[in-house]
Design a protein around this nucleic acid. Sequence first.
DNA 1: ACCTACTTTATAATGATTCTAAATAAGTGT
DNA 2: ACACTTATTTAGAATCATTATAAAGTAGGT
Lengths: 132, 132
Amino acid sequence: MKYIDKLRNSGLRPTKQRLQICEVLFNTEKTFHFTINELEQKIKDKIDCKISLATVYNTVHAFEKKGYLKQIPINSNQTYFDTNVTDHHHFYDLKDQKLIDLENSDVGPINIKKKINGKRIKSVEVLVKLED
Amino acid sequence: MKYIDKLRNSGLRPTKQRLQICEVLFNTEKTFHFTINELEQKIKDKIDCKISLATVYNTVHAFEKKGYLKQIPINSNQTYFDTNVTDHHHFYDLKDQKLIDLENSDVGPINIKKKINGKRIKSVEVLVKLED
DNA sequence: ACCTACTTTATAATGATTCTAAATAAGTGT
DNA sequence: ACACTTATTTAGAATCATTATAAAGTAGGT
Ligand SMILES: [Mn+2]
Ligand SMILES: [Mn+2]
Ligand SMILES: [Zn+2]
Ligand SMILES: [Zn+2]
């Protein structure tokens, strides 16, 4: 019931698959980072029936487009997504290949002084790479 | 002649292919950003003979390992490299899919206050996404 | 119930990257 | 110059995340 309105208000039909994916993605205290394959595994663990991989991709992209998920730019062969869609920064642990959130207070305000003609700043993200 | 010592000192044999790739990558006033396919095109334009795609990949990875190139993390299906290996930040133009360097003075110092036990900061990079 | 547009799904296609193994080239010592 | 060893190049195949296809299923409206 919890996610039916959210989906309807976004113009997305509240199908069984989308509602189950909502449960996995959004029915948690903490936000988290994931790849498509990790999400597929989480879905398998939490839910009895199978959702096809194509639907997982479709749904994640639909949710991203609606602003319920965002991509995190890191150099990996897989795309990383974030259920925390607020503006925030990341540690990236190169050994474990894990993302860790940084609070904005951990980084401080960033003032971009350069301007590009005819372009607006959409986001400012800091990536801090960690090694041992 | 210019790059033979550079390669030898890195433990890389100065082959014809590597020297030609050095010309394309490093024999310019300005640094630049590229994908493997863009580099392959540049090589074709500047040079008579063909270098196999496998060699372009091998060479770029070898140069990256030696610190003569670095990867730029952005969400793209292709990996972006940078001949500017100093610590610096980027604009990413979402429409044109082009990277633009930011000077450190354009961003100011970034002080990461959070610490992770047993990990050291390797790099701090800011990515500023631009839209129209 | 019926219609239509949206969604799911299995499967195939795509495409960047990596792997393989055979042919070449570079460095080293004689 | 030659023989020998090791690094490198290369064409082609393999990998694998992601996207496209198109047929079957579903949601929501009339
Ligand atoms: Mn990607
Ligand atoms: Mn990549
Ligand atoms: Zn995050
Ligand atoms: Zn740069």
